[in-house]
Design a protein around this nucleic acid. Structure first.
Lengths: 115, 115
DNA sequence: CTGAATCCTGATGGATACTG
DNA sequence: CAGTATCCATCAGGATTCAG
């Protein structure tokens, strides 16, 4: 996993969304702009540190915009960029496939139980 | 990453292909049945151990079929199952997105250089 | 040829405490 | 509120060696 140059576009995509947390963040933000705290609460089991680091990484990749409001207490909003939003079809495809897959697994489990 | 129960289908999908190696294996096998050695050679920088473990995992997930020929020297073939093949649209979507993304990055780099 | 067994490493993520 | 700073445990993955 040492490549800066990822020849294959599939790998490039994977580098940006191969992570569970990134996908969860993506899913939340596809829903619209959210604040740091909202993200943390929505995702639930993520620590501040990890959330921050992934948001930073996604910002660097150009998927997410970070807007800081000069207020006390602090107020920071995260929004998907156009590039980030363009990942939606992939997420949707994954959702659809995952749904089918789960259904398949469940029916297999049921069959096994019936025998 | 402690969930056995992944409520979200997107996460389910991610569990199966969130890995660089798995995707590379997938890509090779989308091309048709391959032997262990062929996979190893095609992927290049993967160790036997890692290749084996991912193939096993994908077999368990029902993405890959493993066929052993009772010969000396050993001969083992790996083939995508129907379920495995059904991931192709996702891979394609990722490939397309990655291509666009790379193009975008490159054009940005070029702009930066022009200034 | 197709692995299995070991050992080792860095990186990732979780827990916790602290701050402007 | 939105992080940063530390420390620690885990684990995937690489190198190497051996085996049926």
């Amino acid at each position: 996993m040492r490549d800066e140059l990822t020849a294959c576009p599939v790998e490039t995509t994977l580098l940006l969304i191969n992570n569970r947390w990134k996908v969860l963040i993506l899913r939340e933000l596809l829903d619209g702009t959210k604040r740091f705290g909202e993200l943390k609460k929505a995702i639930g089991s993520i620590s501040s540190k990890v959330l921050t680091s992934h948001l930073r990484s996604m910002e660097e990749s150009g998927l997410v915009d970070r807007e800081v409001f000069a207020e006390v207490p602090p107020h920071v909003e995260y929004t998907l960029t156009e590039t980030g939003n363009s990942l939606k079809p992939i997420l949707d495809a994954m959702k659809e496939w995952g749904t089918d897959y789960q259904a398949k697994i469940n029916s297999e489990l049921k069959e096994a139980k019936d025998n």
